[in-house]
């Protein structure tokens, strides 16, 4: 029972629905003739809780797959690595700049996640990074952070 994947999914959404309903209540429900800011949010929260409850009951009644089985025989560490890389990219993007961050991200993805030969990885990383930078900065006039390369990229 405690490893039932759908049960945990349902419980998560039940808690989320109740949280949303509480937030709606806090915002103020108003009256039917003049609904407040929290009116729709409160009822949406309750509806979420109701649907989640039906999922929980269904999971208890019918059972479901083991939560660990969802990741069995998968390459989940690679998924985790991509998420971490994206978060690191976000944190360093403005400080270090688009070019360096993108180069590192592409190289890591192409060498660590699903390895391709070094020459291909380097060619694609440099080509894509500078190609995108040129298109966005020069052609579409979209400003990307230059970071550490500001003196050279202008």
């Amino acid at each position: 029972m405690l490893r039932n994947a759908q049960l945990w999914g349902g419980l998560f959404w039940l808690a989320f629905g109740l949280f949303i309903a509480f937030q709606g209540y806090e915002l103020g429900l108003g009256q039917a003739r003049e609904p407040g800011s929290g009116f729709a949010i409160f009822w949406l929260g309750l509806m979420m809780a109701a649907f989640a409850t039906s999922i929980v009951f269904s999971a208890i009644k019918n059972g479901s797959e083991d939560i660990a089985s969802l990741w069995r025989d998968t390459r989940w560490p690679k998924v985790l690595l991509i998420i971490v890389m994206l978060l690191v990219f976000g944190f360093l993007f403005e400080t270090i700049g688009f070019v360096i961050c993108s180069l590192v991200l592409l190289l890591v993805l192409m060498r660590v996640v699903d390895p391709v030969p070094w020459p291909t990885a380097l060619l694609v990383s440099f080509g894509a990074t500078f190609g995108m930078w040129y298109c966005l900065n020069k052609l579409l006039m979209i400003q990307l952070p230059n970071g550490w390369l500001s003196p050279w990229l202008g």
Binding site: I82, L86, F89, F93, S102, L105, L106, L109, M110, V113, D114, P115, V116, T120, V124, A128, T129, M132, L136, L140, I142, L144
Partner: peptide, 17 residues
């Protein structure tokens, strides 16, 4: 394996821009 890093990069650039 060549395509997905580029798609991911396009996603980041598209979202940021």
């Amino acid at each position: 394996k060549l395509l997905f890093p580029l798609i991911l990069m396009f996603c980041i650039v598209g979202v940021f821009s």
